[in-house]
Design a protein around this nucleic acid. Structure first.
Lengths: 411, 411
DNA sequence: TTAGTTAGTTCATTGACCTGACGAAGTGGA
DNA sequence: TCCACTTCGTCAGGTCAATGAACTAACTAA
């Protein structure tokens, strides 16, 4: 049997409509009650009632009459996510940096911090040590602004394995760090206790899955079945169904970068041979293009590398080889998944058309039966996508269940 | 914006609960009102009211008091799908046969027909001609039983492309038949008119997607993200999310069998080189095992072929090669999709452990980061899965929206 | 025969949304 | 300035469906 699907009563109806209205307000910026009524199919009266409940709960703010954009008639009073509503912390880390941000109910970034560190070789506790000052400053910033922090989301470049509690997966394998079954959760909870926030909710997810959440919420909220390719140093991937990342139970966001392509290929740091990462990963591109990854900052590296890859002959060869390897791995995946859309993000996506164009050309040859190519787009959020998505997972819970949040806060 | 998500009102509540109760009755065979109340969380009174509405609509039947299985107390009156409720016709065809069945609301097969034909080279209209007598007998059988036919579902071994109406896709490519953009829908509608059933609903789907629907409904209703591998002569595949097949927009159930594995491989009937089908398809296995596909009936072929493949050395080599090819194609797919479960159906699945075991052994090597293997199971429904699933798509609409059906029937 | 147990129904109650009418707050023309 | 006209939001009464408690029905066991 399906998981005990519940019947709907009056209470469930209200809960659903409350969540629906809050979601529309957070996603569509300032909206009037009438517009909400039109979109939801509810009446103006009902929307008013729902909105006033959200206003009382301090989740929504009434801006007041809008400046005459309406043509004749009483101007609408616009609603927006509360400026003093709850926030979430989003964290991410990789071989070369740790970063964090504060995100509000509307998904907007209210604060942002990045620190370059050489993280290779660090253990989970040491890594949390590197994250801690940054985390402390973000928490302080929230308190100073008079806002509550609902929880901390972490985007990890790792294979996550689901535990009994599906919402609290375990970090099973981080190839670049050499971690196996690392208890990042406990280490972070310890740091939070030390920072004066004991018991704060922590949720760890795969970085590609996190980035996919942020990317699709911002750019493609109405995609049906889609695929996100991303990851920072490593290539990651995640299936997105109806806007929700589906990172699976065992691999929790995939180990796409370590799919074996060439049985006798080069040895990968992960221990295997001929991994996709060895041909299409950033390090592979840089090396093949004669540009080892030094002196390139994380933010400007994309543009500079992209010109290097298109202007030199070695660069073009490297890109062609990467497109081949990616196409080879993507072929069976796309033939079966047949997504509405493929979004290329992370550092790979940051290279833009230098990678997109060759990949587009190669892809059709790897997927049979296509009348028209599968749309392939570059991500739009840049390198912050992963931590933004991690934070969104936290605020998303509030938006999805405002009643639960309200009763938790106000009894 | 998402597709104008509607708010819930009293009417929607009733609609939802009505569908929920009907679904539980159809899926869980005879059930009492009390058990329904327990499962749905609704009260006995509400369930009674919902059930009586379904009884009036002739969708559900009250069997009467059950034979004393209860320990003390009044025996429950059990409910089942109405024995005179609506039926659906499911059709399927492939190179060597056409077949059809009648399926009731509960998914049970009430009638079944199969005819061996040599269909290679037939055009869409000729194929419908081969289906027509069979279809006529099924319709007559339904009328004789005093039951309504709600529609006809067809499982086609073809790539389906979605049109504006997502529920009515077009047959875009049938490699084995050499069809491109064939209007099977029009041909079938014509046949139905000639058979005295003008305007009857027709829905065509990819055979693997159809089989997946039947297979997961019967065997794995609570799987989250899963993968179905099937197809009759060709290998097909379909992603299943929360029990619902997701055959995509462009390929509509995949062209998995024609994924290019070896750029310089053998030429495939589809025109390309080195297709997966050429290594892991049924024809490939038969040929490699020295047993061309003659004299094997569709029903007994599985068992006899399976012993041939395990007992002879040539057979074992063929199976190993097929497992290699399948594993190679499945690796990237499983690494990203990371399904809870993989079900192997169609003719490939009919070979049972002869294929499953080698595939299990090879698969782990193609998916990195796995602590435990992805469960791989053989399908249970046998060669009728596709047409059963096609019919289920029709009855599924009634079960999902009983109110729409009721108003359509009774005004 | 009687107590105990479980199934299903009846009916008043409650909660949430709907309908229709109204006041509020603007615009634009006479 | 005044008055139609339009749109926004609220209020009061009405409707619909689920709820909860009491009640009848049916059967078991002592």
């Amino acid at each position: 049997m399906r998981e005990a699907e519940r019947g709907a009563g009056a209470a469930g109806m209200r809960r659903h409509n409350l969540a629906l209205v809050l979601r529309l307000i957070t996603e569509s910026g300032p909206v009037s009650r009438v517009e909400l009524a039109g979109r939801t199919g509810l009446t103006k009266a009902t929307v008013s009632s729902l909105v006033s409940e959200l206003l009382e709960a301090m989740l929504v703010h009434d801006i007041g009459p809008a400046g005459g954009t309406t043509a004749g008639g009483r101007p609408a009073t616009l609603l927006e996510p509360a400026p003093l509503g709850p926030l979430a912390v989003g964290l991410q880390f990789d071989l070369d940096h740790v970063a964090g941000c504060l995100v509000d109910l509307g998904g907007r970034v209210r604060a942002r911090e990045l620190r370059r560190v050489h993280a290779a070789g660090l253990g989970p506790r040491e890594l949390v040590g590197a994250l801690r000052p940054l985390l402390g400053r973000l928490l302080t910033a929230a308190v100073d602004a008079g806002r509550l922090v609902a929880g901390v989301g972490v985007a990890a470049p790792a294979v996550m394995a689901a535990t009994e509690d599906a919402d609290d997966p375990l970090l099973a394998w981080a190839p670049q760090f050499g971690w196996r079954d690392a208890d990042l959760h406990a280490a972070l909870s310890g740091a939070l206790t030390a920072l004066g926030a004991p018991g704060m909710a922590v949720r760890i997810g795969n970085d590609a899955a996190c980035a996919a959440r942020a990317e699709f919420r911002a750019g493609h909220p109405d995609a049906g079945l889609a695929l996100y390719l991303g990851g920072e140093s490593e290539i990651g991937a995640c299936v997105v169904a109806d806007g929700v990342p589906r990172p699976g139970v065992r691999l929790g966001g995939s180990a796409f970068g370590h799919v074996p392509l060439r049985p006798r290929g080069a040895r990968c740091p992960c221990g295997a041979r001929g991994c996709l990462d060895s041909y299409a990963g950033r390090a592979a591109l840089l090396t093949a293009a004669g540009r080892p990854d030094q002196g390139l900052t994380r933010m400007t590296g994309g543009a500079r590398l992209s010109t290097a890859l298109t202007s030199t002959e070695a660069g073009q060869r490297a890109v062609a080889a990467a497109a081949d390897a990616l196409g080879e791995a993507l072929g069976p995946l796309l033939a079966v998944l047949d997504p509405d859309l493929v979004v290329l993000g992370g550092r790979l996506g940051g290279l833009g058309d230098a990678v997109l164009e060759p990949l587009r050309r190669r892809l059709s040859g790897f997927v049979p039966g296509l009348a028209e190519p599968i749309p392939l787009r570059a991500a739009t959020l840049g390198p912050d996508a992963a931590m933004r998505g991690a934070a969104l997972a936290i605020v998303g819970q509030i938006v999805a269940e405002p009643l639960a949040w309200i009763t938790e806060m106000f009894g």
